[in-house]
């Protein structure tokens, strides 16, 4: 079976005027369906850059990045938008919309897709929030929630659309040990239930236990793929 994320010989540089600063060097990594991969590495090693390329947020031009069978290298905006819509993204900060309640925030993922009524959307959002243990905080806005609760809402938002891929960028960075562990445990459980693959970048070594596989990125090079 071909990998759900198939990255081969990816090179990426930031261009600043005339100077090219290489960030990713010849990165090759396949991720299979249902696999949970944690990418670690020190700050500035290129983890987040890698994640944004795979998530269709950043355009790379050298190598091959196939996500869900679509080539993202030199891709059109439409292809990138397609990939984004099929990917659940969990951010370092929770990045919830301040003006919306937990339920409305989660429902935003579903509003992009046609064919669902408002009632269905809110039901799905409620279901998802119950699954992350936030069923009693449906109508709270982000500033009425704790950091851990916000991140759980954000996990619900990423997973409510039943994505095949979940990308998480340091999801525990702003959380204490316990709520961080809780958050990733929930994430793992839900991903396993729905068969989604997870690519999680972090330098929080306390959560490596949830991974099926850990890869280390250092100075743009994969050490142990």
């Amino acid at each position: 079976m071909s990998p759900i994320i198939d990255v081969r010989n990816l090179n990426f540089s930031f261009i600043n005027g005339e100077i090219a600063l290489p960030v990713l060097k010849n990165v090759t990594i396949p991720i299979h369906k249902g696999e949970i991969v944690i990418m670690t590495g020190p700050s500035g090693s290129g983890k987040t850059t890698f994640l944004t390329i795979v998530g269709g947020l950043r355009q790379a031009i050298d190598g091959s990045v196939k996500v869900l069978g679509q080539q993202l290298i030199n891709s059109t905006e439409q292809i990138k938008v397609n990939i984004r819509q099929q990917t659940g993204y969990i951010f370092q900060q929770h990045n919830l919309l301040k003006s919306l309640t937990a339920q409305q925030n989660v429902s935003m993922t579903l509003e992009m897709h046609n064919g669902m009524t408002e009632k269905e959307r809110l039901e799905r959002a409620t279901e998802m929030l119950r699954a992350v243990g936030m069923g009693d905080r449906l109508h709270h806005k982000p500033d009425q929630l704790s950091g851990g609760q916000r991140q759980r809402v954000s996990i619900a938002r990423a997973l409510v659309g039943q994505p095949k891929i979940v990308l998480a960028d340091e999801p525990t960075a702003s959380l204490d040990k316990q709520s961080g562990q809780e958050a990733v445990t929930i994430l793992k459980r839900l991903a396993k239930e729905s068969g989604a693959s997870i690519l999680l970048v972090t330098h929080d070594y306390r959560i490596l236990n949830i991974a099926d596989r850990v890869v280390e990125l250092e100075d743009g090079v994969i050490n142990n793929a």
């Binding site: 998530g55 947020l57 938008v81 397609n82 984004r84 819509q85 099929q86 990917t87 993204y89 951010f91 990045n95 919309l97 301040k98 935003m108 993922t109 992009m112 938002r157």
Partner: peptide
Amino acid sequence: RHEFATLKAMGYK
């Protein structure tokens, strides 16, 4: 702009 960027990352055009 952070919220808009978030929505864009989720696939909003």
